[in-house]
């Protein structure tokens, strides 16, 4: 009965299982300890978040799956996933969650953790650099809409220099680098 010969039974060659012992059990606690993670464990995987999401249709991992992956300790997969950056941050998921899990905010926490590890998609990185160097994301040039409405073409009082100075001391600067 206690025969423990591992060769008994056919080997499960067709199943490529995720080895739970190779995952990071502390990841769940890490997210839980972050500002938005308190209710993380309350998730019962009803998938309301995925139903609410306007873009999850395009995602490889849906929102409810990402939360499951966090709970299971799949740190690598979550932090390197594209999905956390594809989130529109519309907060529909968080609004509807029956267990008050702060889904959108948890994805922000994930993005922060990913960024700490230098895991930032190129387009987001480019935007951050733009912000650091120009002090604004979109430079408003003589805008016909403003003109049509009888406003002066330049946005008045936009102090990009002050913002650039402030941004130098921020975490964004540390993560993104860029010219001094």
């Amino acid at each position: 009965m206690t025969e423990t010969d591992e060769t008994t039974g056919p080997p499960v060659t067709l199943i490529d299982a995720i080895d739970m012992s190779k995952l990071d059990p502390k990841f769940r606690e890490k997210i839980k300890s972050m500002p938005n993670g308190e209710a993380l464990a309350a998730c019962f995987a009803c998938s309301t978040c995925t139903a609410a999401c306007p873009t999850a249709n395009m995602w490889k991992f849906k929102p409810h799956q990402l939360i499951r992956m966090i709970l299971l300790g799949m740190r690598e997969e979550v932090l390197s996933s594209n999905e956390i950056w594809l989130c529109l941050t519309c907060y529909e998921c968080q609004e509807r969650c029956p267990q008050k899990v702060r889904v959108t905010d948890i994805f922000f926490d994930c993005k922060n953790l990913a960024a700490e590890e230098g895991n930032i998609p190129a387009n987001v990185l480019a935007l951050a650099k733009e912000l650091l160097t120009k002090g604004q994301l979109y430079t408003v040039t003589a805008d016909w809409e403003r003109e049509d409405m009888g406003l002066e073409p330049e946005v008045p009082g936009l102090s990009v220099e002050a913002i650039k100075r402030i941004l130098k001391d921020t975490r964004t600067k540390k993560l993104v680098g860029g010219e001094e």
């Binding site: 499960v12 199943i15 299982a17 995720i18 080895d19 739970m20 995987a45 998938s47």
Partner: peptide, 13 residues
């Protein structure tokens, strides 16, 4: 080995 139907993955415990 457990099939996780929410993740559509197999997990080994």
């Amino acid at each position: 080995i457990v099939y996780d139907s929410l993740l559509d993955k197999y997990l080994k415990f």
